[in-house]
Amino acid sequence: MMNDSMSRRSLLQAAGLGASTLLLPTAMAQAAWPSRAVRFVVPFAPGGTSEIVARSVAAELSKQLGQSVYVENKPGGAGTVAMQEVAKATPDGHTLILGHVGTLAVNPYMLKNQPYDVNRDFMPVTLLAKVPNVFVIHPDVPAKNFQEFVAYVKKNPGQLNYGSAGNASAGHLAMEYLKLVTGMFITHIPYRGTGPQLTDLLSGRTQASSAGLPALSAHIKSGKLRAIAVGTQQRISAMPEVPTVAEMGFKNFETSQWYGILAPAGTPADVVKRLQEESLKALKSSAVTARFATDNAVGGGGPSSEFASFITSEQKVWSDIVKRAGIHAD
Rank of each mutant, 00 (worst) to 15 (best):
G212Y: 08
S222C: 09
A287G: 11
G102H: 00
A287D: 15
D92M: 07
P190E: 04
A282T: 03
E148C: 07
T126S: 08
L198W: 01
G249S: 08
M6L: 14
I220R: 03
S7A: 15
M2Q: 11
K224A: 14
T267R: 00
R324C: 06
M83L: 14
N296S: 12
E247K: 03
N133H: 10
I327Y: 00
V134E: 06
V118H: 08
V71R: 02
R274V: 10
S319W: 01
G102L: 09
L127G: 01
M123R: 10
N3P: 11
V81Y: 13
T255F: 07
L280G: 12
L280I: 08
S217D: 15
A59G: 14
P25F: 15
M110G: 04
S222W: 03
E176Y: 01
Y109M: 01
V42H: 09
T95Q: 09
P34T: 04
S62Y: 06
Y152W: 15
P25A: 02
E254I: 02
A59L: 10
Q13G: 14
E306L: 12
H94L: 01
M184G: 09
G302C: 12
K154M: 05
Q84H: 11
K155V: 06
Y259I: 00
T267S: 05
A31M: 12
L96C: 04
A89Y: 07
I189V: 15
S319Y: 03
P264Y: 03
A58E: 06
V242D: 07
G93T: 09
I52R: 13
A282H: 02
L11D: 10
P43F: 01
H172C: 13
I228S: 05
F149Y: 11
P196A: 07
D330A: 11
A215R: 00
S209Y: 00
T267W: 00
L225G: 03
R291C: 15
V141N: 02
G16E: 12
S50L: 14
W318P: 12
T126F: 01
Q30M: 15
K281W: 11
K144V: 10
R9P: 10
I220W: 07
A168H: 04
H172G: 13
T90W: 10
T294P: 10
K154C: 09
Q64W: 01
N252K: 11
G249L: 07
K273Q: 15
W258E: 14
A308H: 10
T21I: 13
Y70R: 00
Q234I: 05
A89N: 02
Y152P: 07
V131I: 12
L275M: 13
S5E: 13
A19K: 00
G18Q: 12
L22S: 14
E278C: 06
A19S: 12
V81M: 06
W33T: 08
H188F: 00
G249H: 06
V71K: 05
L201C: 05
A54N: 05
P46G: 04
I137N: 01
L11W: 14
T312Y: 14
H94F: 05
K284C: 02
G223N: 06
A15I: 06
E314T: 11
S286T: 14
G300S: 06
Y70T: 03
A282W: 09
G93Q: 11
E306W: 09
Y116W: 12
A27S: 14
